[in-house]
Amino acid sequence: MANGDRTVVIAGAGSIGCYAGGCLALAGRRVILLARPRIEAALRQGGLRISDLEGRDRLVKPGALGITVDPAAALPEADVILVTVKSGATQEMAALIKAHARPDAVVISLQNGVDNADRLRAGLGPRTVLAGMVPFNVVQSPDGELPLRVHRASDGKVMIEDGDAGLVRLLAVEGFAVEAHADMKAVLWGKLLMNLNNALVALSGLPLATELADRRWRLILAGQIDEALRAMKASGIEPARIAGLRPALLPKVLRLPDWLFRLLARRMLAIDPQARSSMWDDLQRGRPTEIGELQGAVLGLAERAGTPAPLLKRVTALARVAEAARLGSPGLAPEQVAPPGGSRSA
């Protein structure tokens, strides 16, 4: 089947889903966005504006893609389903796909965390389910702004599990680079190491570039990564490289003085100045966060491996408090997250 004849359904058209779907539609792919009512209404009124770090700024007109809130309308049309819901909604989405999608539709998880593809497989039975990873950050415009804008605020290639070369040809389009990878387990655990910073951005309320430029915050991230690497080593997990670095080197680079970090970590700092994390956005909107799938995944691994993880526990607890308060980011200082002399090591 030619690329133009295959229909891609974005199952969970939030920031990442709208960005992926918009790029695909601009490249002539047949796309249906399965969205929440707020997103559907905005897209029908003003279309979808797609911009990125490289300076592209493109408009997808409302008629250029399918938009619906009804799984029964979208999923039966799918040849490929890109699952972009938050981790907490994975099982619900699996049930919807099982109920409405054709058995031959290929399902790809483009979600945070390390086990969402496995959750989808558990719910879908003998269907083709592939793991995937999105390395970049996407920022969504404020409620009420038209057209709805999704802006890719950092770079990187989307990785999908190897097995079908046609999928890469279908999905790799301008603004949305895609390649296959033979070891998605390593890729997902490598991505998780840097995703441990999502909670720090959420707790601080700072833009990602500002937070990473401050060594006090990087020390906390480095401490979390140390704990994660110990748990992974004890469990026989070898994470993939992050931003070109071997994972073991990442804490050392993060602990460098600010001036030297800026010099050596340009790739890591190639981020839009206003970009924040999806967890920050969840706190701002009063939604459940993915702390359980990020820090929580490592804590579970550490518990099973018998390795200590006090800093990860501390960050998780603070995120849970902020989540329960439903008041947005608490705007904490680094000393409130990891007091000097605590588990944060310099």
Score class of each variant (00 low, 15 high):
residue 2 A to I: 05
residue 7 T to E: 13
residue 11 A to E: 06
residue 11 A to Q: 06
residue 15 S to H: 08
residue 28 G to F: 07
residue 31 V to E: 09
residue 36 R to I: 02
residue 37 P to A: 09
residue 37 P to R: 08
residue 47 G to N: 07
residue 56 R to V: 00
residue 58 R to K: 09
residue 59 L to H: 12
residue 60 V to E: 13
residue 65 L to Q: 09
residue 79 D to V: 03
residue 81 I to L: 15
residue 86 K to N: 11
residue 94 A to F: 01
residue 95 A to D: 10
residue 95 A to I: 00
residue 108 I to C: 07
residue 113 G to T: 04
residue 113 G to V: 06
residue 133 M to N: 10
residue 140 Q to A: 15
residue 146 L to K: 09
residue 151 H to T: 10
residue 152 R to H: 07
residue 156 G to N: 04
residue 163 G to S: 01
residue 164 D to N: 10
residue 170 L to T: 01
residue 174 E to G: 05
residue 181 H to G: 03
residue 187 V to M: 06
residue 194 M to C: 03
residue 198 N to R: 08
residue 204 S to Y: 13
residue 206 L to N: 11
residue 208 L to C: 14
residue 210 T to V: 15
residue 212 L to Y: 11
residue 214 D to L: 14
residue 223 G to F: 14
residue 227 E to I: 01
residue 230 R to N: 12
residue 230 R to P: 03
residue 236 G to S: 05
residue 249 L to D: 14
residue 250 L to C: 04
residue 255 R to N: 10
residue 258 D to L: 15
residue 259 W to N: 14
residue 269 L to N: 08
residue 276 R to E: 13
residue 278 S to Q: 11
residue 279 M to G: 09
residue 288 P to E: 12
residue 288 P to R: 06
residue 290 E to H: 05
residue 292 G to N: 15
residue 297 A to V: 02
residue 300 G to Y: 07
residue 301 L to N: 10
residue 302 A to M: 05
residue 303 E to V: 02
residue 305 A to P: 00
residue 308 P to E: 11
residue 327 L to E: 15
residue 328 G to Y: 10
residue 330 P to I: 11
residue 331 G to A: 10
